[in-house]
């Protein structure tokens, strides 16, 4: 990397404090370090301006009154029934869709890796998963309205063919269950995509070694396979959780602002200060960061425990 080095070097020097005749080794190293750091400055500045500062601004604002005084009142106000219920529904939908996505995604990944199905099924499912995991947002809501909405294909078919009225059971696409089912459409493929390589990494010999040592299939899964897969399973589930927790477009297109989940509440607050306190909006955002952040801390902690047998 010498050429850019020299040019940047000459650009930076002369340093008035530096007597070039006695320039020491350490000064050289220091200068080199400065150059090294300069190389990633654009990235750091970008991350600071468009990722870290905006977030910190909200975090700071959560602890201020509109007049700029320090306060815990915004945080305390988060515990009003309306906001608590929004968080609660969001958390429930996120947990349900991430667990559902994790379980079904796990079985699908298992089926294509270990189930002995033809390879075209595997490549087909993986390709489809790549598409479906990115098929989120507004169009996904449209798809489910057309399928499970009041005049959706499945609803109509169930009614006309077997006389089963889905909506008389209390089902509603604009509810907790409906949102969970919709979210799982991108959660499952994501799980498949992340877990398939992990399952591919399971050596056949582990299975055979456990078998020849007398273990049953169940014992193999309980004592060997699941402990080995645990970090990826857990990590992906928590990723799915954060993914669902922050998602707004699907829910908004599906329900308008009728469903009281945190991202929609925050969206409404940004648009029109429905909470009548801008700083309470910051606190709402802080709450979201804390929850997704916590799920990541939990993931890192659990993984470090589960991975003590790895490097």
């Amino acid at each position: 990397m010498r050429p850019p080095h020299f040019r940047l070097n000459s650009f930076l020097s002369p340093n008035p404090l530096d007597d070039s005749r006695f320039m020491s080794q350490s000064a050289l190293i220091d200068r080199r370090t400065v150059i090294d750091w300069l190389g990633i400055m654009p990235f750091m500045i970008f991350a600071l301006l468009f990722l870290i500062l905006p977030t910190l601004y909200l975090v700071g604002g959560a602890f201020l009154t509109p007049d700029g005084d320090f306060t815990f009142k915004n945080i305390a106000d988060l515990f009003s029934p309306n906001i608590v219920s929004a968080y609660w529904i969001s958390i429930k939908v996120s947990i349900a869709s991430s667990l559902g996505g994790a379980v079904i995604g796990f079985f699908l990944a298992w089926a294509i890796v270990m189930g002995g199905v033809p390879s075209f099924v595997r490549s087909g499912l993986l390709t489809f998963s790549g598409v479906a995991s990115n098929f989120a947002g507004v169009p996904l809501a449209f798809a489910f309205i057309a399928t499970l909405g009041r005049t959706g294909l499945v609803t109509v078919l169930l009614r006309d063919l077997i006389g089963f009225n889905l909506y008389s059971t209390g089902f509603n696409l604009l509810s907790f269950l409906g949102l969970t089912i919709t979210y799982m459409f991108f959660q499952i493929p994501l799980m498949v995509l992340i877990l398939t390589p992990a399952l591919d990494g399971m050596k056949r010999e582990w299975r055979e070694a456990s078998e020849i040592l007398g273990a049953s299939t169940w014992q193999y899964w309980r004592m060997i396979a699941l402990p080995i897969l645990w970090p990826s399973l857990l990590g992906t589930t928590l990723l799915l959780f954060a993914n669902a927790f922050g998602a707004i477009a699907t829910a908004y297109a599906l329900t308008g602002s009728s469903l009281n989940i945190v991202p929609i509440l925050l969206y409404a607050q940004i648009r029109g200060d429905v909470l009548h306190n801008p700083n309470l909006g910051y606190a709402l955002a802080l709450g979201m960061i804390v929850i997704t952040g916590l799920s990541n801390v939990l993931y890192i902690w659990l993984r470090s425990r589960a991975e003590r047998w790895q490097k």
Binding site: A47, F50, L51, I52, L53, P54, T55, Y57, L58, G61, L239, A242, N243, F245, G246, I248, P263, L266, Y267, I270, G281, A285, M288, I289, T292, G293, N296
Partner: peptide, 21 residues
């Protein structure tokens, strides 16, 4: 870690920050 942050911080929070900042 920095590149993974956008998976942790919801998009709506980031854009909220932009609007204020």
């Amino acid at each position: 870690f920095i590149t993974l942050l956008p998976l942790v911080i919801p998009a709506i929070v980031i854009v909220f920050g932009y609007l204020r900042l």
